[in-house]
Write a protein that binds this DNA or RNA. Structure first.
Length: 560
RNA sequence: GCGCCCGUAGCUCAGCUGGAUAGAGUACUUGGCUACGAACCAAGGGGUCGGGCGUUCGAAUCGCUCCGGGCGCACCA
């Protein structure tokens, strides 16, 4: 085979077309050449709409342009034929060898198949989950965790140097409410008590914290150990203990979910380190602030907001976005020229404000920085009814419940497999009672099946890459090859669009292609050439299934 | 009222950045284990892509406008 063997068919065809284009219309040689896979087999293996794209610019009939392109197309061993169809499509039919070579490519590089250098090793930070330490993680946090972590994995596969960060809002009113709530419980009072704070947290877990505090338990959370003081009157001690206690619980849940972070940032540290004061001083010096009605305002309208925002309240305290600005200035100074914040859509209003504040600083931070991935709300259905998520009311489904009842793999798959722009209905009953019908098992089953067959073959998997693939010629086999061929671009697209759900979609298709083939053909047949070629294909599928499941944070079991 | 997101088969969702006859799963109706794992496969019915107008060779995809649903529009975080 010629040098073309090192390329994938799509790139090869684009190169051929580019050569032809340069020869017939040098003026338009910079036109983007799009090669796509037709939905219908009768339209060939690949198709290009180049002639139609050029029609407008060249003021000519697309079919005539297509004819000229074909006449100028260099010969290729991979190309069986290229013909013109419809309004001016160019349909390519490839040699079988061009379609099956992907199996050798996959086996040669193993898990590296699908990894790219798109990110060029540049630093990138993803902040996700960032739950307030005021209660256990719920399903919404779970979605953020599943999407954020998977996004990190996909970006890393695409060549980025990824840092995972969790930001704790461990200061402010919510923490005061938490402290009051725990203190009430320490005194044995219940939410029915007339003195119970209106904004207090009513969940059962508050009782656990109060008990642990009175028992003078010690809590180790991430970076420090806190021993409960036990004094019912010491609000500061209660606050410190409650926050540490809940951070520990959240850490446990995240660990059970297969998620870890590189950096934990604390809002309280921004105050104690003087970073908030510094940001405020810079904002004041920028000339974008003004005093009105005993408060200090930031002219966010200078940066696209629809109205100005208060940054310092008349009681002297800062509004919540001020520490956010200080926090992001810190991110910027840490060298992250690319930052993605994964949050619930209810945080949408902060985006404009934080970006406006950052630009007002005059530090040269770009307009669109940081970037955001917002996931829409998760609606939890139980017993056919919607479960309201309210920490204060104390009725909600925790992430821990889901992991224990549905399993880590199914929970992660379910929460990541959908476009974050769409609302998610998590039917707990369905997830529990019909867990064997969850698509994640369908994908894992394909992996386990391949493992089983290869085990029964009892040969050396590393030999498979040396056998010829000529025996692969069936429709299902070639479709499977085409699917494998599409994996690297699937990863790249998912990374570029911050859309890990596309990995899940791909894996379902890959598993379906495999199951269909598996039921139609036997692998362990007497004919050695056929057996080896089919095993090689299966081994390649297994590699991609593993890689893909890993990107979702889902395990790839060898038996189920 | 303003901003963002969504609306595709009974239900849950894809749809490769504007391509050719809109696809999966589920549910329903059939068929396939003395064959490498039936947690699987094959076949069938099921659609005004929320409605309308526009942009062009071509629209589920882009623009405008209605309708419906969600989330935000604090000197809360």
């Amino acid at each position: 085979m010629s040098a073309s063997a090192s390329l994938d068919p799509k790139t090869h065809l684009a190169d051929l077309l580019r050569t032809a284009l340069a020869s017939i219309a040098p003026d338009h040689s910079s036109t983007d050449i799009l090669i796509e896979r037709p939905k219908q087999a009768s339209h060939g293996d690949y198709a290009s709409n180049l002639a139609m794209q050029l029609a407008r610019a060249m003021k000519a009939n697309p079919r005539q342009i297509a004819e000229q392109l074909l006449a100028a197309l260099p010969a290729s061993e991979w190309l069986v034929k290229a013909d013109i169809a419809g309004a001016g499509f160019i349909n390519f039919t490839l040699a079988t060898a061009a379609k099956t070579q992907v199996v050798k490519s996959v086996l040669a590089v193993d898990a590296a198949w699908g990894r790219s250098q798109a990110g060029a090793g540049k630093k990138l930070q993803v902040e996700f989950v960032s739950a307030n330490p005021t209660g256990p993680l719920h399903v919404g946090h779970g979605r953020g965790a599943a999407v954020g972590d998977s996004l990190c994995r996909v970006l890393a596969a695409a060549g980025w140097d990824v840092t995972r960060e969790f930001y704790y809002n461990d200061a402010g009113n919510q923490i005061d409410n938490l402290t009051k709530s725990v203190q009430m419980r320490v005194h044995g009072l219940t939410p029915d008590d007339p003195n119970w704070p209106e904004e207090g947290y009513r969940g059962e877990y508050i009782i656990d914290i109060a008990k642990a505090y009175l028992a003078k338990e010690s809590v180790v959370a991430d970076d420090k150990s806190v021993v409960a003081n036990g004094d019912p009157e010491n609000a500061e001690a209660i606050r410190e203990f409650a926050v540490a206690y809940l951070r520990r619980e959240q850490d446990k849940d995240l660990k059970a979910f297969g998620i870890s972070f590189d950096v934990f940032s604390l809002e309280s540290a921004l105050y104690s380190d003087g970073k908030v004061d510094e940001a405020v001083a810079k904002l004041k010096a920028s000339g974008h602030t003004y005093a009105e009605g005993n408060a200090l305002w930031l002219k966010t309208t200078d940066f696209g907001d629809d109205k100005d925002r208060v940054m310092q309240k008349s009681d002297g305290g800062y509004t919540y976005f001020v520490p956010d600005v200080a926090y992001h200035l810190d991110k910027w100074r840490r060298g992250f020229t690319k930052v993605i914040n994964e949050q619930g859509a209810d945080h949408h209003s902060t985006i404009t404000r934080v970006r406006a504040g950052l630009q007002a600083l005059g530090e040269g931070i770009p307009q669109g920085w940081p970037e955001y991935v917002l996931h829409q709300m998760v609606m939890v259905m139980k017993n056919g009814e919607e479960v309201k998520l309210s920490k204060r009311a104390g009725s909600y489904v925790t992430l821990r419940d889901l992991i224990e009842e549905v399993g880590k793999d199914a929970t992660r798959y379910f929460l990541v497999a959908r476009n974050p722009d769409s609302q998610l209905v998590f039917d707990v009953d369905l997830a529990k009672s019909q867990s064997t019908e969850n698509p994640v098992y369908y994908i894992q089953y394909a992996h386990a099946r391949i493992c089983s067959v290869i085990q029964q073959w009892a040969g050396d998997v590393s030999d498979l890459s040396h056998y010829p693939l000529d025996a692969l010629s069936g429709e299902k086999e070639l479709a499977l090859c085409a699917r494998l061929q599409a994996w690297p671009e699937t990863v790249d697209t998912a990374a570029a669009e911050y859309a890990p759900y596309q990995i899940a979609v791909y894996l379902k298709d890959l598993a379906a292609d495999f199951h269909g083939w598996y039921n139609a053909e036997r692998m362990l047949v007497d004919d050695e050439a056929i057996k080896h070629a089919r095993l090689a294909l299966a081994a390649a599928v297994r590699i991609v299934l593993r890689s893909g499941l890993d990107l979702l944070g889902v395990s790839a079991p060898e038996s189920m």
